[in-house]
Design a protein around this nucleic acid. Structure first.
Lengths: 204, 204, 204, 204
DNA sequence: ACTTAACCGAGACGGTACGTCTGGTCTTTCG
DNA sequence: CGAAAGACCAGACGTACCGTCTCGGTTAAGT
């Protein structure tokens, strides 16, 4: 039998940086369009103008490709709005959420969250990506409002945020309606002031 | 050869009424577990203890199978709660929604709604199934409350309902948390009274 | 979760007998043309007018396909010639060998024998197939000739047979010449009477 | 068999001459082991301790590599034996043939001859390489014998030579037996004196 | 009871897509 | 400038799964 002979190493090489970008973008787009299940690496490669073996070389499995794609898509500057009043801040946040969910990245993330309950690693990735859009900002907004005394005592910050997010989620994916500025204002007003008539003595 | 006699009026029929039931139940279960994409008719047949050809005979395509499965699953008595007060009624509605979303049928429907934006016929089916749980009841509840003067003037009934539904949706599918009675009460209170402090006209 | 239900078994089924024949014939033909290495199951399937999955279903590996193909091709009636004289018998045998080697089956077998020294199972198969054409007949011929006193004392039967076979092998595959009746007669005469002039006293 | 290659630390610039030698040797070895079909340039390069691009630079295609490899392997001095008697000369020739066929070059050549009937250029190369071992010598031997009167009148020189070669070919590749001196002697005696009993007066 | 006809189970088959493997071309870097 | 190191493209292969087909067996009607 014959043994392999090792030579000294030569210069490494790093090309195709742009190629990686294109592939990841295409991946996010396909994730949004067809979801994780039907995401096909050969198809991604074809759409990216590359050969499928090139994609397989860099990302051995679909999960890793999606991981990188989500991470690349989530380079957000988490800049919380600061209008000086809770209402304005919440409207700003809601706009961010709506923009996210209506973009390809958001659709991709939400589809994974909805569909991949049984895939913990992937779900974790999506959760992280979803959290990117609101890791700190929203909580800061509510904390400031609480300090200013704008929030009812005992108000659950998470509940407020998730209710706004949930309403937009429902609007976008269930009703498939567009999220207009008017809708956002009404939503924020509802969450802030409630739908009930104001009473002098509220039983609670 | 004489002419043919009349056709034999033999008519053996409908051996598998129960078989149909089992298949549809399995279909809903798989829809909830893996979604529409990965729903496989051979798999459904196997889980139902039937042969795949038997399933293909009755439902030529996956879409029709899902249609029947959703329709069979949606035999709801749309009985709106009537506790006499808006808060109690909304809590009842929220419970219904939460129960639905956490059951197999609801998961199936929501997954289809989220994932099959590009499949109009299927989406329409899911919308109908989703509407079954609240075709009329919720609106009646709000109408009654408005008549009783419990609702703020100009309150958008749809916004109220969809916000509650969206919050539960977010809770179940994004946070993957359980919907406790306490959560529902807090949610309803948030939507009714808002998160902001009451202003001048309301003392406390 | 749904459990599987067991039914009672039904009747088996065996179809596609002609399909098997065609595939095996094509296999032998390709073996002769391109050899074992370049024998491709998808190609065989295509040439046989079948789908490659059908071929893979019946023959999990190329080795098994070739095994069946060789066995199917080797349904020989091993009828030794009997002309009453050794020369005529040998000519008959040589004709059989030449016919075999110039046919697809023979080419297939010889190519495997030449090329697959490292594949014992396959080599064994080819040896068997090659042996089919002369399992008993040739030895009977020589035994009869020896009994009749036509053979020199101490003549090695195997050497005689293999020399004739080897000469034809060389003719067909190395020289790539055709095996004419004249060639066969000259060959047999050479092996029987030798190329040397006859001496009165031959040592050894 | 292929031997390991060691990089010379003293040699700063591997003058391509040694490199070419190693590659060609490896090529012949692989030709003998796996044949032309499975001969892979990347594999040859790896076994030679070189990079595949280096091999591709020098030999654009497998055919040219094999051509050079065969030519390099065939630097034979075609020195015919001359023992003074036909029997001894033939034994010498047979030894040459047996040595050739059992060596790597011979195995390589014979495999190509057997397998590459459809590749004229390659076949031509192999024929030339095969002819190297006996371009003139064998014919000289027989011509001398004929002049000495050792050969039967009308004996076909080519038939004699090819029969000896064919018998050895069969022995080596079909029977996969070793070619012993005893075997060669018996073979030569068979071809010279024949297997039949000697008759008193043989016409012919 | 016997025939008849529909339904169901079983498996072969064609087809499509996937992921892997390997061969050959290219570019970049080093000596 | 030659050689090494990979990245890249291209194509074929074997596998998995789906949906269609044709069998044979069973069961439920109706004479």
């Amino acid at each position: 039998m014959v043994t392999r002979v090792r030579r000294k190493p030569a210069a490494p090489q790093t090309r195709g940086e742009a190629f990686v970008q294109v592939v990841l973008e295409v991946t996010v787009a396909r994730l949004a369009e067809v979801g994780f299940e039907r995401l096909s690496i050969p198809e991604v490669a074809s759409l990216a103008g590359a050969n499928k073996t090139s994609v397989y070389r860099r990302w051995p499995s679909k999960t890793e490709l999606v991981r990188d794609a989500l991470r690349a898509a989530m380079s957000h500057a988490d800049q919380p709005p600061d209008t000086g009043a809770l209402r304005g801040d919440l409207i700003g946040l809601a706009h961010s959420v709506a923009t996210f969910m209506q973009a390809a990245q958001g659709t991709a993330v939400m589809r994974i969250l909805m569909a991949q309950a049984g895939h913990p690693q992937l779900r974790q990735l999506a959760i992280e990506a979803y959290g990117e859009i609101g890791r700190h900002g929203p909580w800061v907004v509510l904390a400031r409002a609480a300090k200013r005394g704008e929030l009812r005592a005992g108000a659950d910050h998470a509940l407020v945020l998730f209710t706004v997010a949930g309403a937009i989620l429902h609007r976008v994916f269930v009703e498939q309606g567009s999220v207009t500025p008017d809708f956002i204002e009404q939503l924020v007003d509802l969450v802030l002031k409630g739908a009930a008539v104001e009473l002098k003595s509220s039983k609670r």
